[in-house]
Design a protein around this nucleic acid. Structure first.
Length: 146
DNA sequence: GCCAACGTTGGC
DNA sequence: GCCAACGTTGGC
């Protein structure tokens, strides 16, 4: 079982949205490195939900990967902002996973706190210039994060 | 709203 | 394959 971190802008999709819907297909990732991490995910993996580009930035909850190797349907949807004209049905570019709500933390673990706790070499999230929206979380950090 | 940092595109 | 131009991410 591995741990991951996945970013979302709460004004687009928040932990409250996931709590209400219980599960969601994590669509819209259009970065190859992030997609490659999505491909590596296995059922039962846990992922931290991170709120980005908002007032209260940080880790806000936890979710579980419940289905893998899902073809992101938005890549074929011409009305979607995530439509990819170069992706074909026979050779889709973008795969993702389905996740289920586990918990919302009583308090957000702020980006500042995470920066105080970890160096960029330890944790990609706080590495200068990093923009990945899906990334692994090193096992030895889990106890320090939660 | 600004802008640094990064990824992607496309001409050559 | 190189790299300038452009678009996006995301913190501030």
């Amino acid at each position: 079982m591995k741990y991951w971190l996945m970013k979302s802008e709460p004004q687009v999709y928040s932990i409250e949205d996931l709590k209400r819907e219980n599960t969601t297909v994590w669509d819209g990732v259009r970065n190859y490195q992030a997609r490659n991490f999505l491909k590596q995910m296995e059922v039962g993996d846990l992922a931290f939900f991170y709120h980005s580009n908002c007032k209260n930035i940080g880790i806000i909850g936890l979710m579980e990967v419940i289905e893998t190797n899902i073809i992101d349907p938005t890549q074929f949807d011409k009305s979607s902002p995530y439509f990819d004209v170069k992706s074909t049905i026979n050779n889709p570019r973008w795969q993702t996973v389905k996740v289920q709500f586990k918990q919302k933390f009583p308090e957000i673990i702020s980006l500042n706190t995470l920066k105080e706790r970890f160096s960029g070499d330890e944790f990609l999230l706080v590495k200068k210039g990093n923009r990945l929206s899906v990334m692994p979380v090193p096992e030895n950090l889990i106890n320090l994060i939660i």
